[in-house]
Design a protein around this nucleic acid. Sequence first.
DNA 1: CTTTACAAACCAAGCGCTTGCTTGGTAACG
DNA 2: CGTTACCAAGCAAGCGCTTGGTTTGTAAAG
Lengths: 206, 206
Amino acid sequence: MAQAHATRSVTGGIHGMDDSPRGKLLSAAARLFRDKGFDRTTVRDIAREVGIQSGSIFHHFPTKDDILFAVMMEVIRFNTARLRDACTEYPEPLPRLEALIRAELQSIIGDTSEAMSVLVYEWRCLSEDRQQEVLALRAVYEEIWTDCLEALRAQGLLEDDAFVVRRLITGMASWANTWFDQHGSLSLEALAHIIVRRVIGEPRDR
Amino acid sequence: MAQAHATRSVTGGIHGMDDSPRGKLLSAAARLFRDKGFDRTTVRDIAREVGIQSGSIFHHFPTKDDILFAVMMEVIRFNTARLRDACTEYPEPLPRLEALIRAELQSIIGDTSEAMSVLVYEWRCLSEDRQQEVLALRAVYEEIWTDCLEALRAQGLLEDDAFVVRRLITGMASWANTWFDQHGSLSLEALAHIIVRRVIGEPRDR
DNA sequence: CTTTACAAACCAAGCGCTTGCTTGGTAACG
DNA sequence: CGTTACCAAGCAAGCGCTTGGTTTGTAAAG
């Protein structure tokens, strides 16, 4: 776990998407899937991107669906680990909330934005049995969020239903990939802080 | 305008998606595009849904792209008119904000949810020149929102940047189509009120 | 240092199928 | 009698994927 943390914080890349043939293929696929969508991306597109023939793709993955599946599994594993790291670093609910929001924004508009867009917007393109496998990992991810929000409720910092609030956060964060400019004047941290205030309101007793 | 309002409030349907052959075709296409995505929906699927042969589709629309375009134009026109109606009914910024949020939720999880999902999630599938045409209508739609949020800022009810807040609202609202249950315990109005509080905070001086 | 061995990575060609769309003609209706 | 709505059949292109064979990297054996 500590080793995984060190690896991630140094490289910033997803384990399994390194510079191996398979890794380069996944990176290219993730970017193409985000830009053009899964269905409009052909295996010939992916092959051209990494400089091989289209047939050679299937030396690394049995089907095109397996490529999508691999992209999704890698990114959800990586970002679940990032959430866990945030939890160990911030045990208290309120700082933890802000850390979780920062982590999720980092996922969506930062280092893993391409694969995250694929996970969110190309969901239907994945075969149904594979959807179940990803959903199982997603449940773990969401449990971390629910625990944090319930803890905030227990502290009286949150009035509304935790599940509803979690969904509002998901919406605000995932939509950010359509407009947030990483080189713009608004920083990721500033946006995270704005979102925190949408969740727990203004600080009134400080 | 008053006539359009009467038509909408009575039928609840989108003008141009009536029970004419063209209208039934658009309705079927909208639902299929939402359920399976534009690319995975074949013209044969649409034809089967309305009970005609696949070739007969092209008696009503020159290309498949035109079907998508028509769905998007109809839904954005319809919902812009709905925003306008909310504005005439609620001239004051704060009630207007809540009315706009209710209207947008109605668009996304209410009577036009299928076509709205298509507008949001199948955006890339539309040919680029058509995207520009839809964008022009979208700008009108967004101006209504910006005006309202800027008015709230002028009243001191909004601290953060109006554009950022608008985008957060868009995210919360559009994401609702993935989880909101129209027959569940949470009503559209209750959700609208929760979102209002995420925008302007708790009422502190009442 | 060379040879041998072998698996991983890749190429060139193309198969079978689905796709959006076309064509030429027919039935219903005002 | 023309317009609207449709059918039956099928074409050309693009798709995921297969196949049989060739190159490349690597590492132990001679």
